[in-house]
Structures are given as structure tokens and as C-alpha cells.
């Protein structure tokens, strides 16, 4: 049995609750993640699904240590990173990359696409041969080399998200966190981006945590799924098992709420008195 890339035990994250902050003094802490146990196996895509406020993004941020857990521990690649100080995290950051939801706000408007993709390379000591490395990154995500000189507003939404992917993957990271990366895109563009991520993850053997609210997308892309609700794991299993035999009522409700593109007159009827 290969050791998982991430091994998470009893993970708790508490953040200041600004709605209850007194006028003077600190805001009280609210527990967002309430003790999570799970592993992320190497070289596969794990889906993390839940409704807004379920803690899925907080979980992602704790994995890449943008947030420090308040309890429990996070083992990454055999190393305990739970409370590592920033200086010691720095060399690991190269392997903890992120693709963001909204490339419009996660790409610097004043920099060219070349310099956006080059920045993390320089930061991580891969500043030699920059041109070739950026060219390779662009080619990997199917963007023409001429895009290197453009700015973010000069490319379409789907192309912008490709730039986000190129930047994250240029470092050949061990782990990529993809947080709702297709939720702002049209279905046709969404399909292109997902196909691309699927291909790259397989080619590069990436370990991906794919956060999404869309179970249909997760089924296509992920090998296993973690269903979250109110800061806890409701159910975690292999994708086929989860979709074919969901064990928890909450998972079944989530599935039943998805409007599939097919005619179903009973779908809108109130559940308790659904006709036989």
C-alpha cells in the first residue's frame, strides 16, 4: 500500500466570527471544521462537495496551509505540516499549488501572461530558462505562444482559466487544489477546462483536491468523493459507490436536487405527496 500524499486526522479549524465581534477586543472564534479524518491518495483526483458554508473551501485552505489548523494534524508527503512556520513552509509551497475560482481576480491585471506564469518559477528557484518553461506551460494548456505578451483582459474567460492552470502546473507540483474552478464558466467552456484538467492530471500524475458544488462534474472527474456539511464529513467513498449506493440521506437529497437536463414532470412536485 502506497502512503497517501495527504493524511489528515482530527482536523479542526477555527476562525474569528466577525458577526459576533465586540466593539473593542477580539472576535470570538467559530469552529468551521469540526474534526475531519481523511486521506488523499497519490495520483488521483478527490472531489470535495458541499453546499455553501459547508467548510469545503476552508478545508482546501488548511490543506495548502493558507490557514493554520487549531487542532488535529495534516501530514503532507510524510511530513507534519500542521503548525510549520512560514519559513519552513516556503520550500514546500512549490508542491502545494492552487487554481482559483475566478481567474479575473486571481491574475494580476498589470502583468502579461508571461510574467504571471514566470513569477512562481522565479520564486521557486526555476528562474533559469524562463522562456522555455513558460512556453512549455502555455503549450501544455493549449494556448498559443502569442498569448505570452497579452494581459488578462485580452483573453476570454476559458482562456483565462487556462492561464491559471498553466501557472499552477508550471512548477510540476505534487498537489493541486482546484477550488470551484469551473463554476463561473459557460457549459461549453466548462467542458473544455475539465477535459484539460483530466488529461493533465493523468499525464503528470497529479494529486488533485477538486472542490465543487456540482456533483455531476465531480462524478466525471474524481476517483473518490468527500461530501461535507456544516464542517463535518457526511460521507466519503469511491465515486461509483457514492453515486450508485449513497449511504447517507443527505447525499441522496443532494443528488435528487440536481436538475438533470431531461423531462421529469414529478421533479417539481412536493416530495411528501409525490404521486405513485
Amino acid at each position: 500500500m502506497v502512503e497517501p500524499l495527504f493524511s489528515v486526522r482530527g482536523l479542526k479549524v477555527a476562525l474569528p466570527d466577525m458577526t459576533r465581534k465586540p466593539l473593542i477586543g477580539r472576535a470570538p472564534l467559530a469552529e468551521i471544521l469540526k474534526g475531519l479524518d481523511f486521506d488523499l491518495p497519490r495520483g488521483s483526483v478527490t472531489g470535495i462537495v458541499g453546499e455553501s458554508g459547508s467548510g469545503k473551501s476552508t478545508l482546501g485552505r488548511a490543506l495548502v496551509r493558507l490557514l493554520e489548523p487549531s487542532a488535529g494534524n495534516v501530514m503532507f508527503d510524510g511530513r507534519d505540516i500542521t503548525h510549520l512556520p512560514e519559513a519552513e513552509l516556503r520550500p514546500l509551497r512549490r508542491n502545494l499549488q492552487m487554481i482559483f475560482q475566478d481567474p479575473m481576480s486571481s491574475l494580476n491585471p498589470r502583468r502579461t501572461i508571461f510574467s504571471i506564469i514566470a513569477a512562481p518559477l522565479k520564486q521557486n528557484g526555476l528562474g533559469d530558462n524562463l522562456k522555455a518553461r513558460v512556453a512549455e506551460a502555455l503549450q501544455r494548456v493549449g494556448l498559443p505562444q502569442s498569448f505570452a505578451g497579452r494581459y488578462r483582459h485580452e483573453v476570454s474567460g476559458g482562456q483565462r482559466q487556462r492561464v491559471g492552470i498553466a501557472r499552477a502546473l508550471a512548477l510540476s507540483p505534487k498537489f493541486v487544489l482546484a477550488d470551484e474552478i469551473v463554476s463561473g464558466l459557460d457549459v461549453s467552456t466548462q467542458a473544455q477546462i475539465l477535459t484539460l484538467l483530466e488529461k493533465l492530471a493523468a499525464e503528470m500524475g497529479l494529486t488533485v483536491a477538486f472542490i465543487s458544488h456540482d456533483l455531476s462534474v465531480i462524478r466525471r472527474l474524481c476517483r473518490q468523493v468527500i461530501v461535507m456539511r456544516e464542517g463535518a464529513i457526511v460521507e466519503a467513498s469511491a465515486t461509483d459507490t457514492l453515486f450508485e449506493h449513497p449511504r447517507q440521506a443527505y447525499t441522496r437529497d443532494l443528488l435528487a436536487a440536481i436538475p438533470l437536463p431531461e423531462i421529469d414532470d414529478a421533479w417539481l412536485l412536493p416530495a411528501p405527496k409525490a404521486p405513485a
Binding site: 461549453s188 473544455q192 456540482d214 455531476s216 466525471r220 438533470l260 437536463p261
Partner: peptide
């Protein structure tokens, strides 16, 4: 939904994710 006529309608349907049929859906246009 029974018989889309325009190629674009057909393509949109094939691009729309469906968890019941993951590999027949999410096709780029």
C-alpha cells in the same frame, strides 16, 4: 429534449454535466 434540431442545441446538451451519464456529458462544443 426528445429531439433537438439545431446542432448547437445538441452540442449544449452534450456539454451539460449529468451525473447519471458522466461520459456522455461534459463534451466540449
Amino acid at each position: 429534449f426528445a429531439a433537438p434540431q439545431h446542432p448547437y442545441t445538441l452540442a449544449l446538451m452534450a456539454a451539460t454535466p449529468r451525473y447519471t451519464d458522466p461520459f456522455a456529458s461534459l463534451k466540449p462544443v
